[in-house]
């Protein structure tokens, strides 16, 4: 390669980087604008954005799809007399949920957080779980908890996150769609019912011992979040949400650690609905991991009874 070639590459390369930098920044502003437009038009369909920026309810339901489809916000609201919002989101696990809770605490202190969990809540995150954290990308620059979660994805994530286009990857159509079409799959309060039920079938036996073990980092992160909740005067109730399955879980490390953490920080953990005999019927389940609307109503009514006794 000649010297003039090298000079040409250097000059053109720098110019190209400068051009891309400008385009990237402008795109970032456009994405932020679209995000706010979409949020105004369809708050329920923009769960992450709504949770991070707008929710102000007394009771917050946090979790993954099991939370979203199992906790009927209106029943809790009517029974406890407190405004309730279901912030559950499909496929989002512990680190996402933790960032959401901290994002809420940055803005205000809810009275109660109902945190839907499974016995393996504190397991090591899978690659899919890490990938799902991308939902937090828009808050990388503004929220410490989101940033910490995002940086777990890979060792080079901090370089990738320099680009706004990368941060808003796969969001354009979602924002445009939400700007045009309101999301009808949600009820007021963020609850999203699912319908249909399992055929009469034998209950699946799940071997919890065969799964990934306790993730110590998760338990440390949870401890600091619970401390923050305690300092903010926010009560936390973990709830083992019912699943149509059986299997021994009481002595797995993830579960015993969760119990210990709850004891340490005076957080409640409601476990008896997990294997409630009235609920564990195929007619109440859409699939093994999710109750249907009828199941959600029955489960929420039972849960409210327990919550009233506790708080």
């Amino acid at each position: 390669m000649t010297k003039s070639d090298m000079k040409k590459i250097l000059i053109k390369g720098l110019l190209f980087v400068a051009l891309f930098f400008i385009v990237d920044r402008v795109s970032g502003y456009v994405f932020y604008f679209l995000e706010h437009k979409a949020l105004q038009h369809s708050p329920n369909g923009m769960i992450t954005e709504y949770t991070m920026e707008e929710v102000d309810s007394d009771v917050i339901i946090m979790g993954a799809s099991d939370a979203l489809h199992s906790y009927v916000s209106s029943i809790i609201e009517d029974s406890l007399g407190m405004s309730t919002y279901n912030c559950g989101k499909d496929g989002m696990r512990f680190y996402y949920q933790n960032a959401m809770v901290n994002g809420i605490l940055d803005r205000y202190s809810p009275k109660l957080i109902i945190w839907s969990v499974s016995p393996v809540f504190l397991s090591a995150p899978s690659q899919e779980d890490r990938d799902a954290i991308s939902d937090l990308n828009p808050w990388y620059r503004t929220n410490e908890f989101c940033r910490n979660a995002i940086l777990m994805k890979s060792e080079f994530e901090y370089i990738k996150m320099m680009s706004y286009l990368y941060a808003f990857n796969s969001r354009l159509y979602a924002y445009l769609y939400k700007c045009v079409m309101p999301d009808y799959s949600y009820q007021p309060g963020g609850y999203a019912p699912v319908y249909g039920n399992l055929p009469d079938s034998k209950m699946e036996v799940r071997d919890y011992y065969d799964e990934d073990g306790l993730d110590e980092k998760s338990s440390k992160v949870l401890l600091s979040t619970l401390k923050r909740c305690r300092d903010a005067g926010t009560d936390v109730a973990f709830v083992l949400t019912p699943r149509y399955e059986s299997g021994e879980y009481e002595s797995i490390s993830q579960y015993t650690e969760l119990i210990d953490i709850c004891e340490e920080y005076d957080a409640e953990i409601i476990t008896d609905l997990f294997r409630d005999k009235d609920l564990l019927k195929p007619c109440y389940f859409k699939d093994a991991a999710h109750v249907n609307h009828d199941g959600a109503v029955l489960f929420t009514e039972k849960l409210v009874g327990e919550l009233k006794a506790l708080f």
Binding site: F16, L19, F20, V23, S27, K160, S163, F168, N169, S170
Partner: peptide
């Protein structure tokens, strides 16, 4: 040429499956 390069990079970053 340069607008095409930028457009393709924009498409990759915003539409690509990067995980």
């Amino acid at each position: 040429r340069w607008l095409s390069y930028v457009a393709v990079i924009m498409l990759i970053l915003s539409f690509g499956v990067l995980d």
